[in-house]
Amino acid sequence: MNCQTFREYCTLNPTYRKQAFLRHKQACSACADFADEMMLFEQTLVEAMKIEIPAGLTERILHRQTIPSADDQRLPTPVGSDERKTGHLFKFLKRYTPSQLASQWFHYSIYALAASLVLAIGLLVGSLWWQSHVLQQQVIAYIENEPHAFLMNDEVPPDEVRAMFQAIGAKLTSDIGPVNFCNLLTIQDYASAHIVLTGTKGPINVLFIRDSQLTGYHTFSHGKLKSIIFSATWGNLAIVGVPEEPLEKIAVRLNEAVIWL
């Protein structure tokens, strides 16, 4: 390898490690100096390109895969016969006698009614699913943003817990067990209380969301966590823990332990 070839390779990639390249570097001091200069530039370039990833990006990626994508939610293409297409209406009318047509229209009106009912039910279920989905996402997002809640081992003084419930217009009527963390927050503009209880398998996050209107009983899985959100007379109660915990029983007990003023 001559000096010119060496310098071309070196400019292109100073970390080049072919035998002929290394041999020339040892033999030619001028080229060795050039290689050192290029290596210095390479190090500066590598450092300049080192952009640290935003905090929590890996976690956000892993979290995002649990949310259904728009593609997954796309509705199937409706199937329709040629006769039902507008452009073929005249052909369709010509094919039948008036009595047959009346009978056909009767059938179509029944189908249309049934389709409207299915659509209405679909919209209702979809809207309910969407509301519960949004609420669930907000609950999970909130819990994920309070990682220190999982680390608290000391029991919160009962007075502090009572004061927190009082702040959202509620009162504890019975013992709910040791509370390791409590906090006031707002979810979807609703005053809410967050407590963390010690379960048999790990921490249990409970959110009392006052006046939230989600109806029914919804269960979700999120990574290694399970969550339940259900409707109470005063709002919604969300409870999140590991699937092995009897979350349903705990939810019922907590709901009974709180009265709303």
């Binding site: 450092e47 300049a48 080192k50 952009i51 640290e52 990833i53 935003p54 905090a55």
Partner: peptide
């Protein structure tokens, strides 16, 4: 980009 730690 400088908001993150290991930044030259």
């Amino acid at each position: 980009i400088a908001a993150n730690g290991d930044y030259d």
